[in-house]
Nucleic acid binder design. Sequence first.
DNA 1: TGGAAACGGAGTCACACACTCCGGTTAGAG
DNA 2: CTCTAACCGGAGTGTGTGACTCCGTTTCCA
Lengths: 224, 224
Amino acid sequence: MNRQTQHPDRPLRADAERNRTKILEAAAQVFAEQGLEATLDEVAAVAGVGVGTVYRRFPDKESLIGTLFDNAVDEIANLAHSAATRTNSWDALVWFLEEALQRQCSNRGLRDVVVGSPYAVDRMAEAKRRITPSIKFLVERAQRDGFLRDDVVGGDIPVLEMMISFLGNLTSTSAPDLWRRYLTIVLDGLVVARTEPSPLQAFPRHDVVSEALHSVHRHVGRAT
Amino acid sequence: MNRQTQHPDRPLRADAERNRTKILEAAAQVFAEQGLEATLDEVAAVAGVGVGTVYRRFPDKESLIGTLFDNAVDEIANLAHSAATRTNSWDALVWFLEEALQRQCSNRGLRDVVVGSPYAVDRMAEAKRRITPSIKFLVERAQRDGFLRDDVVGGDIPVLEMMISFLGNLTSTSAPDLWRRYLTIVLDGLVVARTEPSPLQAFPRHDVVSEALHSVHRHVGRAT
DNA sequence: TGGAAACGGAGTCACACACTCCGGTTAGAG
DNA sequence: CTCTAACCGGAGTGTGTGACTCCGTTTCCA
């Protein structure tokens, strides 16, 4: 039974509203760090409230994640839109990728949604519908201006983003900017032509990279 | 208790040996398709034997996965080694990436090990030790010959492979060759300079891509 | 100040899997 | 052919996990 809508519209009591906010913030942080596998108990702990309180505001885990996801999509949609207002079409595309990736790379929860965790499956469709047109515009404009190779397509951009952000998620704890190095390489592959490579951010010490890979262990279960 | 080593060396009975092989083949297939989360019950079912039989040959899940992983590493090490014997240094590097990725992209289990599933953690170190030198050679030779940009490093190759193979894993069921498109772009980013883009494989219909993303659902649990 | 609204968090429940156990079957040595 | 050690199947066990509920207590605010 859904407890939160006795009178659908009555505003929440002050403390309740305060807690709702704390929960949302905590959830954003916890899911970003741990992915959607994180427990609502943990979210509650970080928010400094009891689990009961979480369930009083959000009927179930999915709806909490949904709210969060909608916010994230809003943000990215805005990014794409405001990139479109920039004058230099190549810089606009690069800027969009950098900004979007910065968010995606530090948000494991977002990845989980995209990869198809059962939470918020249908919201993905809506998200794509909202973002696709802006990206298409960015791509085609950069092509008209002779920056971007002609054989790529709007749909390639999300795929490339996904590809890079996986890497980012994996290394986010110990080499949080490593993904930029590979974005540069990809961008050098997207440009129509070039006479020399763009400068790359330094490659981290090997132990950092491998440690990064193995610091993932959320669930060290069963295999002890 | 470990049941399989009564007399460490005695050869297995004919039927037992036959089953061991069936189990190994089934496990390779199942883990490649589903990742390491797959159940040994499922492996047994595919192999056409009972779970008990699986546990009689392999003391636990980890050791079965370990055996499989060692095989996969062998294969990739051989690839790297035999790439080194090729005369054209750029073609050698590209060939290695294509071959290695073809394997990694169709093997979700491999990804799980690399990403740090608790199975076979220490085997990773050994694997890296074996493969790293050959890759270093491939990279530096291609740089000396003026093909590969100078600012990349041996360690970049596994990272790029990882990045692309995530994508591959995600789309392996419905667009099994999609990763090649993005490998081409990355390679165009790795080359020292170029006057035009390399030809790209066609971009699939949009519905294929998104369906690909959402066909992943291994565990549709809890979120119904 | 009364009572509706909100709170906390121990407890419930359902499920998922790695692994075991044992009664029945079979290979293959003598 | 026979006999037994080796092998087999798969129902069952044990453990862990995590979403969600319940209810006695506390807090807001009219």
